[in-house]
């Protein structure tokens, strides 16, 4: 159990650093804003209690907000993603044989399952984030395009990260 907590803290720190130092600076023609830190919420164990999931989402979003100078923006979007996570897991299909430490990763659940799960949650998160940021529906299609492109890039990045972690574990 301790190992699990430790593992998640490290993951949290690495993802926040990656987001703040590297990905926040990526921008292509104003349409591409990957927010890979959401992977932290995606990879929490299945058995994470609901309240903890929400509190962790809040903390994650708030940390990113502090570093981006956008109070509440990432927090609201990430809490929404955390809230939706159990429903999405149910929707995509649960498995029977969970143990407490099992988490929804690519190597645990397979590519198809993980991809569906990731796309839904990342899209939800990015949609909330971008619409809040623009704070009106007047630029609807432009915002939608931004959401779709950013979602695609974030998902791609998350899948790549998962493969890198898998191959590293294989070597051990």
């Amino acid at each position: 159990m301790n190992r699990l907590v430790f593992q998640n803290i490290i993951r949290f720190l690495l993802l926040v650093l990656l987001q703040v130092l590297l990905l926040n600076k990526i921008n292509l023609y104003g349409y591409l804003n990957p927010f890979v830190y959401i992977l932290f919420i995606l990879l929490l164990p299945f058995e994470t209690p609901g309240w903890l999931l929400l509190v962790l989402s809040f903390i994650t979003g708030f940390t990113i907000d502090i570093f981006s100078g956008t109070p509440g923006l990432h927090t609201a979007a990430t809490v929404l993603a955390g809230f939706a996570r159990p429903a999405v897991i149910k929707l995509v299909g649960e498995r029977e044989e969970y143990d407490a430490s099992m988490y929804p990763s690519l190597q645990n659940m397979g590519l198809k399952w993980f991809l569906t799960y990731t796309v839904i949650l990342v899209f939800l998160h990015h949609a909330a984030l971008n619409f809040l940021d623009v704070f009106s529906f007047t630029e609807f299609f432009r915002t939608l395009l931004r959401i779709i492109i950013s979602t695609a890039f974030t998902v791609l990045f998350i899948i790549l990260l998962q493969y890198i972690i898998v191959s590293r574990k294989g070597k051990r």
Binding site: F58, G72, V79
Partner: peptide, 16 residues
């Protein structure tokens, strides 16, 4: 809890 946290987040957002 979701509603509570979301309200806190949105309050922060709107005020700033």
């Amino acid at each position: 809890l979701f509603v509570l946290l979301e309200v806190v987040a949105l309050a922060m957002f709107v005020n700033s």
